[in-house]
Amino acid sequence: MREQLEQLRTGALQSIATAASVEQLQEIRINLLGRKGELTALMKGLGSLDASERPIVGQLVNTVRDVIESALGGAIKAAEEKAIAVRLQSERIDTSLPGRHPLKGTKHPISLVIEEICSIFAGLGFSVAEGPEIEHDWYNFEALNFPPEHPARDMQDTFFVENNLLLRTHTSPVQIRTMLKQKPPVRIIAPGTVYRCDSDATHSPMFHQIEGLMVDSGVTFGDLKGILTVFTNQLFGQKTGVRLRPSYFPFTEPSAEVDIACVICGGKGCRVCKNSGWLEILGAGMVDPEVYRHVQYDAEDISGFAFGMGIERIAMLKYGISDMRLLFENDVRFLRQF
């Protein structure tokens, strides 16, 4: 039996040494150590030995098995490494070829800017309000202190529909609808589509605005300046200069046009800012008491501000688009760049 074991050991080590692949080594393992393997068969024969011899031979069998196991283990590891090396050596792809991916989709730049502005204002505690685009004259003009036959109506060329309805010329009627629905405090922004009958390189008959309204006790014009400064800095960069200058809107007083330092030239003066160094981006002001009267708020108890801006203008500045018409031509070669 001892010779048998010795023979087995020598033979096994020899065949392990000459085996060429992991598969062959696995086969050797099965043939020797498997359920029906040679060494297993020998181990089964231990029972027929003398009780005195059994531990010694048993010890020997274990040693031989350990030797074979260890040799096999080493050989398999080496063979595996070799196989991987061979595989890595032989497998080559051209990584310069483009990857496989579905066609890219994009949001319209108007949607992108609306989302960005809404998210900035969400951070300042403003929620989003909406209103109809086909609007009553009362909401679009009268409640906003544009009396009939008032020259201020000339500022907004209006598309009319029958029954005293019109296409809203600004998102400001959402202010009225919101204040009629709820009591202060109010803090909303209202993005939406608006219309004016005007069409050329800088005017589109349909465009978009975002309206903002904050009404509470003790809100000041300085607060308006603060909110708009934070907003423009977030939208255009931390150090964007902001300038408010007096203006007029029937529904705010005091009113302001808000300029930012030209994002193209940094305020030095260029074609885009007409050499002024400033770009007008929004209109704003303190809500006029006349507006409060229309929504049954008491101007002595509360105060607030409103502001409105054109989305197209901001999109054009942000993305350096020079012709507004590109935004509505829907040419995918343009849209896919966003």
Binding site: G125, P185, V186, M214, G222, K225, G226, T229, V242
Partner: peptide, 15 residues
């Protein structure tokens, strides 16, 4: 308008 300080409103939470 340039002399008006920019402040942040102290307002009730509405969100």
């Amino acid at each position: 308008y340039d002399k008006i300080p920019a402040t942040m409103p102290v307002a009730r939470v509405v969100s």
